[in-house]
Design a protein around this nucleic acid. Structure first.
Lengths: 224, 224
DNA sequence: AAACATTTGTCCGTATGTATA
DNA sequence: ATATACATACGGACAAATGTT
């Protein structure tokens, strides 16, 4: 799911694992549309495996909030409400803020330099209008901070929310602006000053701002 | 009588559901010890079902962080490090604080009254030394606040962490003190004053304090 | 080094339950 | 209301992978 920096080892990946990754990808990028019915027999044939690994993959996607299961009735992709940006980003914001706070005394100057490079690439992607690359670089930036907080409970909570953010991006609910560029730099400055309180405050603001931008964009569309 | 929040109708509970609940309970209360090997065939026989629902339940417990699975090798209960209190409570604290913040403008006086009753029962349990009841009442108190925040992403993130807190209680890593009683009341006052900032601040402090208490207790034990 | 024992991973058949005509 | 069609839930057997003797 997160796959931040390292590739998955090319060791025997299970049929369940392949099914999970593939179906999740299809749901996130919209190949499988919200409310679409998921027939495990069909998916099994499509992926060339039996129904068992499909069933197991769907159950994991269920707890992750990507599919709904109605016992004895059917399984379907969960719906996407664009307004969910305002529901996902607050918890993601406070968790990212906490991660920044905890990472402050642990992060090395080397890592900060790496983050600065990623932020430069992020800025270039934004300028070029390559928002998908920008989103992935933004995610990478924050994931490195999260890793440095060295707290698996924070990491796990965040990675789940992040997958939903990616899905919202594909459904045109997440807008990226260049405000993030200088906020990222401000976080790095706070790290260098060992100012965990400032790092946390800006990190949270960095995520919450996207809510306002979404509604501003919506208003903009409505007026046309 | 206070609302017994949500008792799901005991309709048609699947074998998988029963297996999941039972195994989770065994892990939380220590019946299944950390690092203990989990043989799905044995569990299947013990619960009178086939391996399939056991396997599915174990996979859910895996993503929840209660069991570790080593493909082709074995499945075991995750280890429990007492120091994990200091890893779980910070994210739980910020999420509970966020829930309190969001609940503030939504919560009714009726609900606040109910919370006050629960806090009274909580206080009585503490005084009697009935810490398990106290823990459940504390959980109920906070869960009602979480519900009122009306944000499923917050709810889901919290419920997972909460299950681990319960497990830590059984492993003597969570200590309850009567400081919580007045903090709870302070949160209720903040609700009545529509002061979301104060509600959030105290809610977070309420959870973080348990870390200090754990280490104070540890130090106390070491000195003996 | 090779065969073995154990455990997980996968397949597929069948029973059960739900919705619809 | 009954029957029918369909999807899921579960069971049991086989195959694959791993660690060991």
């Amino acid at each position: 799911m997160p796959i931040p920096t390292n590739f998955l080892s090319p060791t025997r990946v299970s049929a369940k694992g392949r099914a999970f990754s593939q179906i999740q990808e299809w749901i996130i990028d919209g190949t499988l549309q919200p409310k679409e019915k998921l027939n495990d027999a069909d998916l099994a044939q499509a992926l060339g495996v039996s129904r068992t690994p499909i069933r197991e993959a769907l159950q994991l996607l269920n707890v992750q909030g990507f599919v709904e299961m109605f016992p004895g009735v059917g399984t379907q992709v969960t719906s996407v409400n664009k307004e969910d940006v305002s529901k996902i980003l607050p918890p993601l914001g406070v968790l990212q803020a906490l991660a920044a706070e905890h990472a402050t005394p642990l992060i090395s100057q080397d890592t900060i330099d790496t983050l600065r490079e990623i932020n430069t690439e992020f800025a270039q992607s934004i300028k070029k209008g390559d928002f998908y690359s920008a989103l992935k670089q933004d995610e990478q930036f924050h994931n490195i901070i999260v890793e440095n907080a060295q707290n698996s409970y924070i990491t796990n909570s965040i990675s789940n929310l992040q997958a939903h953010v990616l899905r919202l991006y594909f459904h045109q609910s997440i807008i990226l602006t260049d405000d993030s560029i200088e906020e990222h730099e401000a976080i790095l400055k706070a790290f260098e000053n060992s100012d965990s309180e400032t790092a946390a405050r800006i990190a949270r603001k960095n995520w919450l701002r996207a809510i306002d931008e979404f509604y501003a964009e919506q208003k903009d569309r409505d007026e046309k």
